[in-house]
Design a protein around this nucleic acid. Sequence first.
DNA 1: GTCTATATTTTGATAGAC
DNA 2: GTCTATCAAAATATAGAC
Lengths: 206, 206
Amino acid sequence: MASMKHTITDVAIDLFFKKGYFATSISEIARGCGIRKASIYYHFAGKEELLFTIMQTTMKDLMAGLQAGLAAADNTESRMRAAVRNHIRFHLERQKETFIASSELRGLTPEHLESVVAQRDEYEHIFQNVIGKGMEAGVFACNDAKVISYAILTLCTAGAAWYRPDGRLSADAIAEIYEGFVLRGLKSGGRDTNRPAELVCDPWPI
Amino acid sequence: MASMKHTITDVAIDLFFKKGYFATSISEIARGCGIRKASIYYHFAGKEELLFTIMQTTMKDLMAGLQAGLAAADNTESRMRAAVRNHIRFHLERQKETFIASSELRGLTPEHLESVVAQRDEYEHIFQNVIGKGMEAGVFACNDAKVISYAILTLCTAGAAWYRPDGRLSADAIAEIYEGFVLRGLKSGGRDTNRPAELVCDPWPI
DNA sequence: GTCTATATTTTGATAGAC
DNA sequence: GTCTATCAAAATATAGAC
């Protein structure tokens, strides 16, 4: 059932995750698939195209999860919770691909880099919009939405770097802890809204 | 004043940060220093020793900053604030080195990896101790101190990946936003302490 | 689709002159 | 301390048989 193209992708994901993109050779990927390295070039133009394919698929699926989560939520807080939950869960459940997608951008050609960064920017923009709406509504502490979005996104993204599927806590348990931590951090009413509103409520001026 | 050994280290930090450890060659480092690649080997045993030196120095300085910050604070909250502030500020101000230290561990020999991981574990342990004390005292929401420590540490560490020294916000401004976000996330009294205390107050069982 | 064989380049590292 | 010269190994990628 599994095509060789699929097998190559899976082996590459495994090796790129374990050793890194630059430290992984075409020969190793071929060995993992039980074929010779020349055969790889029948399925992919080269190592970089393999990396690009992995990243593109990952970003597409990540975005789809966000859209689905947001569509099912009807107020600012539940939308934010859905966004955080999707982001952290996706990064734990598809750990290898998400880790590659966030750490191997330097392996892409300029054209492919531009394409993946565009996908990432679109995703971030939606995320920042949810945060910005919450700040405008006073549900979240007024702060710099862009920096806060980076904080939340990278926080979850880094989960792919330390998570162990056979570890003490399940992905669900971690997602619940993270969701609580992030939402508390966002909430207004605390003593830590320590900057004047007119200075920091400026979500997207680059 | 600057010795060649120092110059080599600086050039290597620059290139490892920009291109990654595996994608950087000894020739490139030599070119950046204005010498031939063979001369590098007079100062360092090889590329890996260069990486190890960078990482070791970075971890030592990071630890020194934490110790100094904690020594100047006298209660749980201010100790936590000092720990977070040191961590985020260090990762922004010494962006290149900290980025390398957190993303190029796979480039180390097993012996050197063990050494750096030991330094990192010691650092994490101190950090987790501050969090654990806050939870015991009821100052922080009772939660899994280990996971929360990973959340906070990776959150700040990732700052080295997106920070731009010439960007809209200074390292100080970002540090203040992060400190507020993290402390709010930690505080008890919110509605998000959603797990039984006896289950989650279990800081260090691996 | 996969193979063998090979071209080309580059790598990390060493020897020995100066 | 830095150089020239060189080595051996490994890399990506291609040509052409089957």
